[in-house]
Nucleic acid binder design. Structure first.
Length: 767
DNA sequence: CAGTGAGCGAGCTTCCGCTTGACTT
């Protein structure tokens, strides 16, 4: 017999809490939800009030039976799942699945893991809030109905194995609509006028850069301004000095951690979450799936202590941040180091980097504002209506900036002017050295990165911290989007310069709009999005989640019955599904590009069985030709020239030792085929233009690599030491083995190899 | 590893949110 059984969601949390509770308490974990709607069929009895059919998830059967055994021997069971809708439901499912009795089951909640908070929770137990559980049930049932009715529509009308859902389809729509905005964007040019002045009598070092407080739409206006500047005298009209301040950003939530780890460390969403999970399990940070900005009182005090010790008391400022996120449930704390006195922790290089980022952000959030002295100087001339403005920012007190500054995505190329200014007085004569009218183009909207898509989803209240990463993964897995980098476009711009009394023109060029690691829609993503937008606009509406959440809140308050809400949603939705199935044609994506100048046949691009393709000749043409579109080409935007070019491959490049060399593009990119071997073309080589000699070089390099591949061959023990992509490794049959650091592959002996293999097999079986 | 593109049809696919391993490279 044990006295008390406490059940929480996470095993790492269980470990910590057990320490706080001590004697008489056993703490176990449910590992999240233990039951879910049946995977077979819909799992919902629609005709019977949408009665859900719950089953214990396959991977939770062991956990549940274990919990059941322990619960039977406990005198009191404390259900301590998270304090939010999902947590309340987990408590209820536990009660049902473990067959706990009302009399000795208590529901407790705490949203920070401290001794005080837990003891307070234990002395203030309550009952399970059935209304909140029913709100979760409504959420679950609605998502199942949407997902399991919409997806089959896509299978029938678009292509099998596709998927749609409340969250993923809204996310997809964001990516597709942004792409269309980018494609429709037309850059507009403007002229900004920038001047370099030297205060009269001073040296080159005192140069001041200033910008005219007016921009011009046309080149003529800009030149006219320069003309007026000829022979003009300038003086300082006004000097304005004021103090500014910057406040630190709040501590991390899941979404902001993902954004900053992406920008500052280059981590993908999945990487960030994996490293954060390790840090959490090692006890280094608090829970990493949270939407809360709250920090425990203890940690506030710890932050104050750490800041005072490291930087001095004037750097400390205790702050409480309030979340502005729609639908935030705040069941946990913000993401912070468990012990703020630890500036670094043990772990892999990536974990250390992520920890350091979390430490800095948390500490910064509890630091003083940065103070700036902002100086603005107005330089004017009697010949001009407008003035030149020079601004400078000087840091008076660094405050939180000493530790951390938030980074921005897509900062654009608007360069900042000088940040320091020489000592100057009103009335000072300023000699213009050069005045330039520079053409500038407006920037196209940036495509989403994984992290900025999450940011947008969070703003719209769509999805939860535990699902942001997996939602984006789904878009990838379905082939809806692709993460890519694309070079910017080179654009020419004009620069008119007035020096002395001469105005000269230079045409310069600049690369802008480069995209790194951004999300681009694929044809199938566009097709699915357009189909859903056309037929199920209410579901992919960005406000759908927010509106339905308001209804769930009513269920939680007890003013609305959950299955009445579902009924009201489902009847019209289901009607729409049935109508779409009956009435709409199979969705296609097809464009006629024009005529092939050689055969005079029609060239079309369309969606084929295996993806987008270009086709010469109509469907009834027995000689029609096909070719797959290249990566990055869209049916919506490909041109006739681009499509015709695709048909140039495969082509015979030449020959080598009397054998033909053929160049083509396959599933894994461009390649050369020579004597039955496939040799990948690097990024430097263009499959359309590579010549015979370049191909032969590649082929020779390939055979050279092949020769070097085998470092050692030991047929007696069936082992080879090979040179692989990641350096030398040991190969025995199908199995590969790492060579430990510091051991030279060339000098390996049979004994040493067997030792390495044995060690690694032992290590593996241990796991 | 490096190619496909007709039509038929059985059997399968799929959601969101809460949690970790168990798998592979």
């Amino acid at each position: 017999m044990i006295e008390n059984l406490v059940i929480v969601e996470s095993p790492a949390k269980a470990k910590t809490i057990e320490k706080f509770l001590g004697e008489g308490f056993t703490v176990k974990s449910s590992f999240g939800h233990i039951r879910d709607l049946s995977k077979k069929n819909l799992g919902i009895d629609i005709e019977n009030g949408f009665e859900p059919h719950y089953t214990i998830s396959e991977d939770k059967k062991k956990v549940v039976s274990e919990l059941k055994t322990v619960a039977k021997r406990a005198s009191t069971i404390w259900l301590a799942s998270d304090e939010d809708r999902e947590g309340e439901a987990i408590a209820w499912h536990l009660k049902e699945a473990l067959e706990l009795s009302e009399s000795n089951t208590k529901r407790i909640v705490f949203n920070e893991i401290t001794k005080d908070a837990i003891e307070h929770a234990i002395s203030n137990p309550r009952k399970i809030e059935t209304n909140l559980v029913m709100a979760q049930q409504a959420r679950r049932v609605l998502d199942r109905l949407v997902g399991f009715e919409l997806s089959p529509v896509l299978w029938k009308k678009v292509r099998p194995k596709l998927s749609a859902g409340r969250v993923q389809s809204a996310a997809l729509r964001l990516v597709v609509e942004r792409e269309r905005e980018v494609l429709a964007f037309e850059a507009k040019s403007q002229y900004r006028v920038v001047a370099q002045f030297i205060p009269n009598g001073e040296s080159q070092e005192s140069m001041v850069e200033a910008e005219l407080d007016c921009k011009f739409e046309t080149e003529e206006e800009a030149i006219a301004l320069l003309e007026r500047c000829k022979g003009a005298s300038f003086k300082i009209e006004e000097i304005e000095e004021r103090e500014g301040s910057r406040t630190p950003p709040p501590p991390f939530t899941t979404s902001t951690l993902q954004q900053e780890a992406s920008r500052k460390l280059g981590f993908s969403l999945n990487q960030t979450m994996r490293y954060a999970q390790s840090l959490y399990e090692a006890g280094h940070i608090t829970y990493m799936r949270t939407d809360s900005l709250n920090l425990s009182k203890l940690s506030l005090a710890a932050a104050k202590g750490a800041i005072t010790e490291l930087y001095g008391a004037n750097y400390s400022k205790v702050r409480n941040f309030k979340t502005k996120t729609k639908g935030a449930q705040e069941a946990h704390e913000a993401i912070r180091p468990t012990y703020l006195s630890n500036q670094t922790v043990e772990g892999t290089a990536q974990e250390k980097k992520l920890y350091n980022l979390i430490w800095k952000r948390t500490i910064a959030s509890q630091m003083s504002n940065a103070k700036l002295a902002i100086t603005k100087i107005e330089i004017s001339s009697p010949k001009l209506q407008n003035s030149f403005i020079a601004t400078a920012e000087r840091l008076i007190f660094d405050g939180f900036l000493r530790v951390y500054s938030e980074s921005k995505e897509d900062e654009g190329d608007s360069q900042e002017l000088a940040t320091t200014l020489p000592q100057l007085d009103i009335g000072q004569i300023m000699d213009p050295i050069a005045i330039k009218a520079i053409e500038r183009f407006s920037q196209k909207p940036p495509r989403y990165s994984e992290a900025s898509l999450v940011k947008k989803l969070e703003e719209l209240g769509i999805g939860r911290p535990s699902t942001y990463a997996s939602t984006v993964s789904t878009l990838h897995q379905r082939g809806y989007v692709i993460k890519e980098s694309r070079p910017g476009e080179k654009r020419e711009f004009k620069e008119h310069t007035l020096m002395g009394n001469e105005i000269s023109l230079k045409v310069k060029s600049q690369v802008s709009g480069a995209e790194k690691g951004k999300l681009f829609p694929e044809d199938i993503g566009i097709l699915v999005n357009d189909f859903l937008s056309e037929n199920f606009s209410s579901i992919v509406d960005y406000n759908f989640t927010a509106e339905i959440e308001a209804q769930f809140d009513k269920v939680a308050e007890g003013s609305l019955v959950w299955n009445q809400l579902i009924d009201k949603f489902y009847r019209p939705f289901n009607k729409l599904v049935e109508e779409t199935l009956a009435q709409t044609k199979h969705a296609t994506l097809e464009r006629v590009l024009g005529k092939d100048p050689v055969s005079q046949k029609e060239v079309i691009v369309r969606m084929g069985k295996y993806g987008p393709l270009a086709q010469i000749g109509s469907a009834d043409d027995s000689d029609k030709k096909f070719v797959s579109l290249a990566k990055g080409q869209l049916i919506e935007t490909i041109t006739l020239q681009e499509a015709l070019k695709l048909f140039e491959l495969p082509r015979v490049v030449g020959s080598y030792n009397d054998q033909e060399i053929v160049c083509a593009i396959g599933r894994y990119g461009p390649y050369l085929r020579y004597k039955g071997k496939f040799i990948s073309l690097g990024k430097e080589n263009d499959p359309y233009t590579i010549n015979e000699q370049e191909s032969i070089d590649l082929i020779e390099q390939y055979f050279e690599r092949e020769r070097k591949k085998v470092i050692l061959s030991l047929p007696k023990i069936g082992v080879e030491v090979l040179n692989g992509r990641y350096g030398p490794y040991i190969k025995r049959g199908k199995d590969n083995f790492r060579i430990p650091k510091g051991i030279e592959a060339e000098g390996l002996t049979v004994e040493k190899i067997e030792e390495i293999i044995e060690k690694q097999i032992a290590k593996k079986s241990k796991k």
